[in-house]
Design a protein around this nucleic acid. Structure first.
Lengths: 341, 341
DNA sequence: TTGTAAGCGTTATCAC
DNA sequence: GTGATAACGCTTACAA
């Protein structure tokens, strides 16, 4: 390995000067700079991250913790994180929080010993335990979840998004709309979205019909069965994740119900999964990649004076594909459509 | 931050002794060990990774490079890598190689300055450039791709897998079987799989029909159209990725062709995507998570004397779901089925 | 503008 | 069995 001393010797200067050049500080002549840079090129020198981090008490590492590594939603966010991080010369360290954050604290302790520049928590709220495990010098931010006001977070307004989704279905003429929620215990987000759905239904004088899955594909068919058992005449199902939405589309077809002619299905998140069914799933989009990028930006700006207010709310968006359609009422008339943007 | 000296002072011993205890070396009494461990607990001490790495020239970091972070196949492998790494006390650092490995070398250089313990390359072959960028001390292994004999790799036998998939379709009675391959330029694997298909077709005296997509969902519908233009009477399509397979199932249904009654579809990889269509996609499974785990194991054993032979071949497996069925010939008879295990 | 030298927190080589 | 002490490769006062 070539060290800063090797470069110094080759350039005929001191290690301190090489360091200054490498770090773009001031205090050397143009000629010196040239010689140093040439030596760096010739020796193919690269500063040792460990030694530098040990001295400066900082490394260009950003930690990312997701409940499940292979989750589509987390993957999209991670993709944004990776892009923003590489752009700024940072590397990302990946961890899985596992069921109910079992591993989170241990990961955060590790990240602390690496002197990470910041940590991003996907789909999980920051707990006091986590905050403690990470120590005090490292900023921590959660993404795709609204985390009270206690810790920084970055998410859409889930209540409003679910409200808008429900309103959209209502504007299509649907009256009997079932909600397929995720596990209320593990993801706070579900409680909030549920509230949005309930508000829209209540305002419209409609009766809520509600069941829980666990956000994943396999949980949807049985939950759909329960939903249908509650009200066999449902004309629309709002699933609070695309995986469940996709499963509902497929299961409905298996049951011989036509989507969207007989029954509309609306998903949530706008992950790739929404495109993988036929008809493609209408859904509420979260700007997932953008969230990942923004999280990095805010994290790295955390030390700065002008750090913006938190939690930061990002816009959601309704995406209409083939799985939703106006209700064909028994009289054959299509109700007035007051779809939202 | 509490350091090894703090612990030493609290326990009334020297830093050297604390180090011995922490690292489980020999050379201290049981009583000393007790005192040190107590001090560690009380002070909540955690060794500094950077200082340790600087001294030992090794960190417990495993680098993982994938073409696209949010890819389903890569995600599954990464999931296995994460699990195996955490089990052994290693952390994983994530990178994206990007189109045609643009970023790979730069990531590898970074990984070198972190003194990573090893690097795993997903769906990409090791090039001499990469090997050079990483330096000589760090093992590098590619996964889910067969990489000649020059560098270690871990993959299924893609030729045999494609052969078996084609044989399966033939055993179902299909004679007009189209192949939907991925981009031959970007992923070597496609060339090999194509060879397996061609061998099976030729052996059976059948005429190959072949088109290329790019392995992703959106590339499949147009490629399918070209396939159908070549032979409108195709009764089976073998797609060399689940994303393309799922797209074929959906597109076929959009075109009014029934799957599998009129036409069978077989995918490749067995990612989540295969489950997200209706009927669910029959496919050739790669043990993706297991590959990730194994890659970590082999990487960390790379220094050992008894490092096994490379490249290592893993078993593939045919998974029959709803998208494939015996050909109903015009005479109404179902051909003899000689399906493989 | 440039060099010297003192650490950063750890491990490893010696002595005792 | 235990403790000084010298690195590891870098940054950063402080001198010159």
């Amino acid at each position: 390995m070539t060290t800063i001393r090797d470069v110094a010797r080759a350039a005929g200067v001191s290690p301190a000067t090489v360091s200054r050049v490498v770090n773009g500080l001031i205090g050397y002549s143009a000629e010196t700079q040239r010689r140093v840079e040439q030596a760096i090129d010739e020796l193919n020198y690269e500063p040792d991250t460990l030694a530098r981090g040990l001295k400066t008490k900082q490394t260009a590492v950003i930690g990312v913790l997701a409940p499940v590594v292979s989750d589509a939603l987390a993957s999209d966010i991670m993709s944004g994180v990776e892009a923003a991080a590489r752009l700024r010369g940072y590397s990302v360290m990946l961890g899985r929080t596992g069921p109910s954050s079992t591993f989170a604290a241990s990961y955060l302790r590790t990240l602390r010993t690496y002197r990470a520049a910041g940590v991003i928590l996907i789909s999980a709220a920051v707990t006091a335990d986590m905050r403690r495990a990470l120590g005090s010098g490292i900023p921590l931010m959660s993404v795709a979840i609204r985390d009270g006001q206690r810790f920084p977070s970055l998410a859409i307004d889930d209540e409003a998004a679910a409200y808008d989704g429900t309103r959209y279905l209502i504007s299509l003429g649907h009256r009997r709309i079932g909600l397929l929620a995720g596990d209320p215990a593990s993801v706070l987000v579900n409680t909030v979205r549920k509230r949005g759905y309930l508000r829209a239904m209540t305002e419209a004088g409609l009766t809520p019909v509600l069941e829980h899955g666990n956000s994943l594909y396999d949980s949807a068919p049985p939950a759909l069965a329960r939903l249908l058992a509650q009200d066999g005449g449902l004309t629309a199902v709002f699933a609070l994740s695309d995986e469940m939405g996709a499963a509902v589309v497929n299961e409905l077809q298996r049951l011989g119900r036509r989507v969207p002619d007989e029954i509309s299905v609306l998903g949530f998140d706008n992950t790739r999964t929404a495109m993988h069914v036929h008809p493609a799933l209408s859904t509420i989009a979260q700007p997932l990649e953008r969230m990942g990028e923004l999280a990095v930006e805010k994290l790295l700006a955390a030390g700065e004076p002008a750090a913006g207010p938190t939690p930061r709310i990002l816009p959601h968006r309704l995406i209409v594909r083939g799985s939703t359609a106006p209700l064909i009422s028994s009289t054959g008339s299509i109700p007035h459509n007051k779809e939202q943007s």
